[in-house]
Amino acid sequence: PPLQNNQPVEFNHAINYVNKIKNRFQGQPDIYKSFLEILHTYQKEQRNAKEAGGNYTPTLTEQEVYTQVAKLFKNQEDLLSEFGQFLPDA
């Protein structure tokens, strides 16, 4: 999708955050991979809900995303709290 005027801030924040996670879990690629899978599942659910026009409730809620990421990022409080800044209604 084309970039909109107010998008770059969020985009840059996301890039920095993904870099931070990659660096932190350099020796644990499975953790990074699981994080990506959670994100993709969430995105897919959001898309399904949007296409269903309100007739579909995502099975992966924001709360569940946060809980799953918290399990992954245990002992990495800074990463988790930063993740909370991205998540709607966290």
Binding site: Q7, E10, F11, H13, A14, I15, Y17, V18, N19, K22, F35, L36, L39, H40, Y42, Q43, Q46, Q85, F86, L87, P88, D89
Partner: peptide, 27 residues
Amino acid sequence: SHDFTPLDSSAVYVLSSMARRRRASQS
């Protein structure tokens, strides 16, 4: 940024769209 894989890029995309949705829900 440097050595971003397609997977990384899609993570960036999901995160920034999350952030947009968050902002939309707050305003």
